[in-house]
């Protein structure tokens, strides 16, 4: 049995990873909510967000803007805009035209689009095959509480991730567009009878979900200090799993699912001998178990909490 401090440390790391997973998972769950589709290029949109953020930071550094307080927010805004627009494009090209055909067609179309995004970064980004170092813009150092090391950098990542989630929650629960998203998720036809513009609402949903993936992408770059064009594959599978654990269509479930997945990964690394090699095996085994025991997820579809 590892010491308690180690477990706590790992749980804390897990929460931080979990916040990133949750940000990806919320996109999956929002898209499923409004259109009943699983958007399989979402993982690559997460990767694209990381690269858009990196390009912005490099561009800003080239013109002499290196101060993190100015450069980071700009990088977030730019990356959110890029992924948001690509997300809307993805929906218009790969999802909506196929609305009346088999879900398998949407699966194929979105998987293909993911491949196109991934290969485009590989080909068009300078030396795209190599992992790219990501600038360390967050405060370094930290402190210790009861044997658990807390790094400022991690607190900042946690804070940004939570702020993004709170923002989405406010958009969904408090704004007119959020009401439209919820209404469309529950009954698209009745929503239109109330005056909701269906196409615009679907666009907004894809912009929102894809923008969140960009936030996750930049956070991932800041955390691992590097990004790679294949990061969207694992990111996508984990994000989708987290959404499925939480119950597809349920925003809060996706957040819980993301956090759970992160904590599972890191604590299994601490609990099992050679655990860090097995962390994904353990985490995905638990996902499979979950899907068998609770196919509707923790907060399943019958839950009134679904958007």
């Amino acid at each position: 049995m590892p010491p308690l401090e180690l477990l706590l440390q790992q749980a804390l790391n897990g929460v931080m990873l979990g916040v990133m997973y949750a940000l990806i998972a919320v996109g999956f769950t929002l898209f499923f909510g409004v259109l009943d589709v699983i958007h399989f290029s979402h993982g690559d949109i997460f990767m694209l967000g990381a690269f858009a953020g990196l390009s912005t930071l490099l561009g800003l550094a080239a013109v002499g803007l290196r101060a993190p307080v100015a450069a980071l927010p700009l990088a977030f805004v730019a990356a959110i805009l890029v992924t948001g627009l690509v997300g809307v494009l993805a929906e218009r090209v790969c999802v909506k035209p196929l609305a009346r055909s088999s879900p398998l067609m949407t699966l194929l179309a979105t998987l293909s689009l993911g491949l196109v995004i991934r290969e485009s970064v590989l080909i068009f980004y300078p030396r795209g095959a190599d992992p790219k170092p990501f600038p360390q813009l967050l405060p370094q150092g930290g402190f210790e509480v009861g044997g658990v090391a807390i790094r400022y950098e991690n607190l900042a990542i946690l804070g940004i991730g939570l702020a993004a989630m709170v923002t989405v929650d406010l958009i969904i629960r408090r704004t007119r567009m959020g009401a439209a998203i919820r209404a469309v998720a529950q009954d698209p036809e009745a929503a239109q009878m109330m005056g909701v513009n269906l196409d615009r609402t679907v666009d907004a949903t894809f912009f929102l979900g894809s923008g969140l993936a960009a936030v996750a992408g930049i956070l991932s770059g800041l955390y691992y200090s590097e990004i790679h064009f294949i990061m969207g594959i694992t990111g996508g599978v984990i994000g989708f799993s987290a959404a499925a654990i939480g119950g597809l269509g349920n925003v809060y479930g996706a957040i819980v699912g993301g956090l759970l997945f992160g904590v599972l990964q890191t604590t299994s690394a601490a609990l099992i001998p050679r655990g860090s090699e097995f962390r994904d095996v353990v985490a995905f085994a638990v996902v499979m178990l979950f899907l068998i025991v609770r196919p509707r997820g923790i907060l399943g579809e019958q839950s009134v909490e679904r958007v």
């Binding site: 919820r182 209404a183 529950q186 009954d187 036809e189 009745a190 929503a191 009878m193 009134v304 909490e305 679904r306 958007v307």
Partner: peptide, 8 residues
């Protein structure tokens, strides 16, 4: 069928 929004 009324079509109220069930989860609202």
């Amino acid at each position: 069928g009324r079509r109220v929004f069930p989860r609202m």
